[in-house]
Design a protein around this nucleic acid. Sequence first.
DNA 1: CTCAAATGAGACATAAATGACTCATTGGCG
DNA 2: CGCCAATGAGTCATTTATGTCTCATTTGAG
Lengths: 192, 192
Amino acid sequence: MSLMGYYWLMSFDRDHVLHVAADLLTRKATATMEEVARAAGISRATLNRHFTGRDALVRALEELGIAKCEAALEAARLEEGAAAGAVRRLVREIQPCTGLLTFLYSENQLFEGEKQNAGWFRIDERLTSLFRRGQETGEFRIDLSATWLTEALYGLLAAGSWAVTEGRVARNDFTHMIAELLLGGAMRRDES
Amino acid sequence: MSLMGYYWLMSFDRDHVLHVAADLLTRKATATMEEVARAAGISRATLNRHFTGRDALVRALEELGIAKCEAALEAARLEEGAAAGAVRRLVREIQPCTGLLTFLYSENQLFEGEKQNAGWFRIDERLTSLFRRGQETGEFRIDLSATWLTEALYGLLAAGSWAVTEGRVARNDFTHMIAELLLGGAMRRDES
DNA sequence: CTCAAATGAGACATAAATGACTCATTGGCG
DNA sequence: CGCCAATGAGTCATTTATGTCTCATTTGAG
């Protein structure tokens, strides 16, 4: 028995293929299906049997990205405690999938005409709610809209992920860099 | 006499073509050469006569983007006054070319192997210097590196530009959104 | 007006990615 | 061991973007 229906042979590891594809496409968004197959250690034929066309692969990656993202949101317990702490937990939890998210983020810009996955909307909603909660409790400023704070978080995650892969900043600084800039900004803060 | 050597006919307006191409490619990064030509109101043949291949066009756009960006840096007078004020002037001046910059920013990620234009390095240097100056005068916090602040500015500009074109935030809020988030962060600041 | 030069439209070959297909081989299960 | 299904390697046709070429037409300069 298997969740996927592949109960006879295990040589095709769907999850492994998706992760390899995510890694590769994160670094080279224009990678060929053959390059993806080779990176995953399978043949192009097999890759095409399971993902008919690049679209199917990207859509599967989208599902994976949404699932990982929502898992990170769960693990961060966004509704608990101070909003600032929730943002810090969120950035820490979401770090492992920023590469995939950045790829999907830029990929979505190409699919302008098509309908986009409802999962992104759910995630948007939860993040915006978090920032709105912070504003309502007086923790966050209100002259920056919760929508913008959400978009800014995406942008900072992408910039941080890119800067890390380029070697311009240390991977271990990722969480601190992003969370503290988003929360506190660049200006020095009087310790009160 | 002419700067370009086209002193007999003026029906090819290089600057116009570049701006149209920038507008189009900003919205649809995968636009065809023919789509670019049609958008610019010229034939594909003429477009190819002046820019042999997509690479030549992108490289010309890169030159344009760098020139516009450096002009914005000049206009912002980065070395004058408080660093925070310089950042605000910079964001205001650079807003008109964020679309083009965002396109080139994502395009550069594809040219991983190739040498990248020295202009970006110059711009990087000037921005990093600005943030470093702010840190040295005690205006900016020092636990976030000047390099990261520069990268974060790029990310916020891209996210802001994208959010505006998607209609999620108002165009008029662009400068305030980006500059204030980068400078002050999301947390409410005690008015002291 | 006349000529030179660039344009526009179209044809053409090319290169690359893709999807579908065949067939021999492999590996697990009964 | 023998079957059976999936894999891998290869082939083929199709599509698409691209670069080049020709030639009639247009347009500005003299």
